[in-house]
Write a protein that binds this DNA or RNA. Structure first.
Lengths: 219, 219
DNA sequence: CTCTTATTGATACGATCGAACCATAACCGA
DNA sequence: TCGGTTATGGTTCGATCGTATCAATAAGAG
């Protein structure tokens, strides 16, 4: 077999160019020529690796999500308080916020694809899979918090998880529009978490929920 | 002066075509020819009324927002419980949810424009004005609720308003993606409102905040 | 009736799009 | 060394884009 290039690396390089263009100007500017220029390759190479433009958009999104999942998992596991329910919940929600350029680009790409999710049947399943997974994950973490006595036992974990996720998603929008800093959004999320993890942080099982008033926090 | 047409009506007709196309397929499909076909007019007419495509996109969005504000105000004022703080807050938040085709289209248009808000300096101010206004409005309503003794007095109205708005916005996303019905989203919002309006609904001033545990609710 | 002008329609032009085709350089097993 | 597969670049083609130009229509004032 003749000279072999690292296909995955090549594909990744081109996919990154797609992300940058989509985040900067929207899908309208993700043309084969622009992607080629941004990635520093020829148009022909993009066709060689991805085929059509539709396939490129699809693959670039798949690579983005795959990448994001790996990085997110690593970040959550590297948290200082990865052994407390609240710490992990906070870490997961922080992945919804554009805390750095990587996450900002990722979310902008998702916004750029958004309308397409609704009519492109190849893209639809990709958009559909993530949220239910995250809801279940958060619900499990809240249940863990209840077992640890940090979350009031009478709360329903799944709806609470759904609300947390929606709140983080809504905060994300404002951060992307630069109407809030990531830190301000995180402070609001912490306030919401204060309400959820309102029971006494007992080291042993304390099934008696003792509601405490939340502490005010500067936005 | 020769025959006169209703300019505003004409502009509105064309703007509606822009909205439908943007909501259906994204800004990529908002071409002059497509808009002309969708509105049932000629390309020349669009140029006559709006000039360039950029001006069309800008004007169509302005008309959308102007329309939306009128309709939203009318809907909120027509509410059954427009005389209670909670009722008005709920009404305002419902405007964030795609409760009908009109609001669904409106929010989809906003999503389609989203990335453009970040680099088109003509569009940026339009996106920037609405959220702070809504936050102040909701904060005032919460303060009203505190005066009525329905909202715990120790809560900070502005951050609470910000969280409510973010939650509604996040729920909106899932409804647009048809991962939730508007009714399910509204049920989650009501759960959040239960937590905020947790004091006794006293007809007279009851400044003593008595925290009560929230009642579970089916999603 | 007619003339003027607001309003609408059809067409043309240069640019750019996605896609396809052809050519060639790089590489490795034989 | 050589043959053939793999990887890359350059160019062309028809379609469609936004925009500009050229006409035609319709209606009210005189």
């Amino acid at each position: 077999m003749p000279r072999q290039a690292d296909h995955d690396q090549r594909r990744h390089q081109i996919a990154e160019a797609v992300w940058r263009l989509a985040a900067r100007r929207g899908l309208e500017d993700v043309t084969l020529r622009q992607v080629a220029a941004e990635a520093g390759v020829s148009v022909r190479l993009i066709q060689y690796y991805f085929g059509s433009r539709d396939a490129l958009l699809l693959k670039a999104l798949e690579i983005l999500n795959h990448d994001a999942q790996l990085r997110a998992r690593a970040r959550v596991e590297a948290l200082d308080d990865a052994n407390t329910p609240r710490g992990v919940v906070r870490g997961v929600l922080m992945e919804m916020l554009p805390m750095d350029e990587e996450r900002r680009t990722r979310h902008l790409v998702h916004v750029a694809y958004f309308v397409r999710f609704l009519w492109d049947e190849n893209l639809a399943p990709i958009a559909a899979e993530a949220p239910p997974e995250l809801e279940r994950l958060l619900a499990d973490l809240i249940t863990w918090g209840q077992r640890e006595g940090q979350v009031p036992a009478d709360l329903d974990p799944l709806p609470e998880a759904e609300i947390l996720l929606a709140t983080a998603d809504g905060l994300q929008t404002t951060v992307l529009l630069r109407q809030r800093t990531p830190e301000q959004a995180l402070a609001l999320l912490d306030r919401q978490l204060d309400r959820l993890f309102s029971a006494a942080p007992a080291p042993t099982r304390t099934p008696a929920p003792t509601p405490t008033p939340e502490s005010p926090e500067a936005p």
